[in-house]
Computed example of a mutant assay.
Amino acid sequence: MSALPVSIPDGKDEDLLTLIEAAAILRVPVNTLRWWRQRGEGPQFFKIGRHLLITIGDLRTWIESQKGADAAS
């Protein structure tokens, strides 16, 4: 079974993504994002009520920073 490709949706940088949507885009399990968040290593989510959210712009920025970190190593 192969993963379906999911890309960052076209939208404004301030549009919101849920934890599940971000996990699908990054192709990692939701629990991995939760673990990274606990350790302060992953993208910066914030809460509205009980929901963890991230903006499209913040996710794009985090992905770009990870690309830069790989190039530096």
Rank of each mutant, 00 (worst) to 15 (best):
T32Y: 13
K47Y: 12
I8V: 15
L59Y: 01
L4N: 12
L16G: 00
W62K: 03
W35A: 11
D58T: 07
G11T: 10
L4I: 13
A22R: 01
I63M: 13
D15G: 03
S73W: 08
S65C: 04
D70V: 10
E41H: 13
G68A: 13
R37T: 11
T61R: 15
P29N: 12
T55W: 01
A71T: 11
W62D: 04
L33W: 03
G57F: 06
L4F: 08
T32W: 11
V6T: 15
P43T: 01
R39T: 06
R37M: 11
F46K: 02
R37E: 15
Q38Y: 12
E41M: 12
I54E: 00
F46P: 00
R39N: 14
A72Y: 09
G11F: 08
Q66L: 09
I20W: 05
T18M: 03
W35T: 09
Q44L: 07
D70A: 13
P29W: 08
I48F: 00
G40L: 10
S2Q: 12
P43G: 01
L52Y: 02
A24D: 15
R27Q: 15
E21N: 03
D15M: 09
D58F: 01
A72M: 09
G49Y: 05
G57V: 07
G11W: 06
R39W: 06
K67R: 15
E64W: 05
K67Q: 14
Q44E: 13
W36C: 03
V30L: 05
L17T: 01
P29G: 11
I54S: 00
